[in-house]
Design a protein around this nucleic acid. Structure first.
Lengths: 244, 244
DNA sequence: CGACCGTTTGACGCAACTCAACTTCGGTGG
DNA sequence: CCACCGAAGTTGAGTTGCGTCAAACGGTCG
């Protein structure tokens, strides 16, 4: 026991893949000791998936969990007639999967190119059962996701199209560069979502998203290069537009 | 240890208040042993609050947690200019509070008359730390709330006013009488929310809510008595209207 | 009874949707 | 390298669902 702890600190015994991993400390794996990490590593596999690839279908059985190593995953729900809503975005090092439930209530799809570290559900469920730290990490992530979901409900229910689009840009900007939260330097980033995805995230149509983006551009709040790359000269002006 | 377990089964030693409590088995308290229950009971207090009473203000420090014993609590968020959105409803035996965070991100207000069992945050936080079962229960409730929040995001982002109102009625009907989920008998209940609250929950105006309710009434999908009491003759017809 | 609050109903305006044409981007093959 | 193609994004014109404003209704309480 003492032994493993010391090893943990010195990183010896930690699988090479984990040592170089984004999720190793920030994600749920941070709660695991060397022994568990080695075990998990044996039963995990790195995957790279392309934009549009479906990871989990709605109502489908879930046999795997995964950590997002890089890229963005969108969680979507659909009405019987095909109307769609993105109900969450997962960035690295988020944990993907729904513990204690057989079937997922939404589908998960790669929005960009995504790297995953996937492992079997049953192994994790067992590890959760005898590692309180792991469960604690999961609870923390889940509480954060709940806060984010509720923030977004305010956006969906009460903001105008213009405010929604500004809110989206702000959300991405902050996720790309967490330090830029309230800094006043310019931020620059690639949108991980197409206009159609943005519309599905905001509860709008493609056309409305496009119009609001051009409006923000004409007003000098953002610059747009090649449709995907966005520069925000002044984050505070963006926040105003988002009614934050 | 053996002793306490046996006691637990026989209910002796369990505080009288807890023995008669809704949350005792279904809620988070179900994860506690007699010893913990006695300790918690010493530091907990039953409260009754009136509709409109604020339990936790947005951004305010949280010094207390609570279980909902009866009634409905609404969780709300506000934009700087006053626009409001209800981001969640808590029914008995839900747990109220946000662990691992000093300040709440939304305000909590009694929608109806509400009975609470309140206890100090610090005590619970300590109990969570050394009772994995308690943390497990919390994780389960949080995951369920997250699922509900995401379901509602679909409603807010993609449904029409008519579908939203039908969805709301369905949600209440199911919460009041969980067995009525897909049964075909008539259901009857009191709305726990005013028209203004319903509007804030659905991202609509009072007037639109009212108009859609009268439309449902005229179409025979619901009956309304005295503004608050609603009867649903056929739940399936309501589900159709809600696009479920 | 009259004041008040919650709700309903009606008339009108506008923000966002729909439909449609056009432009730009990115990749592919001649 | 340029020509071509399909996909993604933009822009415009017309429509509509929901919001706004305003008035009336009904129940409750002092």
């Amino acid at each position: 026991m003492d032994e493993t702890l010391r090893k943990d600190i010195h990183n010896s015994g930690v699988p090479a893949l984990c040592r170089a991993c984004e999720a190793r400390h920030r994600g749920v794996c941070g709660a695991l000791n060397v022994e568990q990490l080695v075990l998990l590593n044996k039963h995990s596999v790195r995957k790279k998936v392309e934009p549009g690839d479906e990871l989990v279908a709605e109502e489908q059985d879930i046999s795997n969990y995964a950590n997002v190593i890089s890229g963005v995953v969108k969680l979507t729900k659909m009405l019987p007639d095909g109307r769609q809503q993105i109900v969450g975005l997962q960035f690295a090092p988020d944990f993907l999967g729904r513990p204690f439930s057989k079937a997922s209530k939404h589908s998960a799809e790669a929005a960009t190119e995504v790297e995953l570290c996937a492992f079997s559900k049953s192994l994790i469920d067992r590890m959760i059962a005898d590692s309180p730290d792991l469960e604690h990490k999961l609870l923390e992530q889940t509480l954060n996701e709940l806060d984010e979901a509720r923030d977004w409900m305010l956006t969906l229910g009460r903001k105008t199209a213009a405010e929604k689009v500004a809110s989206f840009l702000h959300l991405i900007a902050v996720h790309i560069d967490p330090e830029a939260q309230d800094a006043d330097g310019p931020i620059s980033f690639d949108l991980p979502l197409t206009r159609a995805d943005i519309a599905d995230y905001l509860g709008l149509t493609i056309e409305t998203v496009s119009r609001q983006l051009t409006k923000l551009r004409k007003d000098g709040v953002i610059q747009i290069e090649s449709n995907r790359h966005v520069t925000v000269p002044d984050v505070l002006r963006l926040e105003e537009r988002a009614s934050l």
